[in-house]
Design a protein around this nucleic acid. Structure first.
Lengths: 114, 114
DNA sequence: TCCATATTTCAATAATATTTGAAATGTTAA
DNA sequence: TTAACATTTCAAATATTATTGAAATATGGA
């Protein structure tokens, strides 16, 4: 993961509204949430929400898919894990501290998306 | 960890200069680095560096200690781990995905700081 | 086709963050 | 105590980001 990518990802999360959006999506799991539902849950106005979702999307922290007239957003677990990995790698020059275990959240792509 | 604290911590890292500073400190390990050394390593001008260090400090991502006429900064591993934990907790509503293991980097407080 | 719903785009405004250089503070050593 | 070094503070200029409301786009159903 490149430094620039990391900064973008961190910046995407480093904002009240966006962290709230992202957490809602993380909790929703792979099934995701419609934009309107996110707006309800977080109280963020649609146009503002759209702005923040684009930001998260651009940082590759969320993905979207059209479903009828709804747009379903979901958290990008792979990116999040890469981010966490980056922050913990290179720790203490590479050796001295405890072995780092990269946390994993594998979406099971099971049901949900119709 | 509170949401507000998390946003502050993420914002502290979500910036080129500060991420570079923090990484240098993470790699340096518990022994830390003097401000001037950080300036050399990163190419950030002293006054700007001071601004960013204060930002990181305020977010509790780094600590400092006076040592002679140097100020030694070091990464705050505990906060970083708490941050990573926060981001991975609540994942997928609490259950569905793989067990998360919080990465640990315990500074050994061994030598260095006289 | 026309209407209602869901979401995005746009432009303007407001709020925040970053960088710079000069000056101030504090520390050591001669 | 003075000189030299390390770091921080300050104020101003610049750049970046967030919020708003109105209008535009796209979809599904009557």
């Amino acid at each position: 993961m490149e430094t620039k990518t990391v900064v973008t990802a961190l910046a995407a999360l480093a904002q009240d509204s966006r962290l709230a959006i992202f957490r809602a999506l993380v909790q929703a799991g792979p099934a995701g949430l419609a934009a309107g539902r996110i707006s309800e849950l977080t109280g963020i106005a649609p146009s503002s929400l759209s702005f923040h979702l684009k930001e998260l999307s651009h940082a590759d922290m969320v993905s979207s898919q059209q479903a009828g007239r709804f747009v379903i957003y979901s958290a990008n677990f792979a990116t999040m894990n890469a981010l966490l990995g980056f922050l913990t790698e290179n720790c203490c020059g590479g050796n001295p501290c405890s072995p780092v275990c990269t946390p994993a959240c594998e979406p099971e792509k099971s049901g949900a998306t119709e």
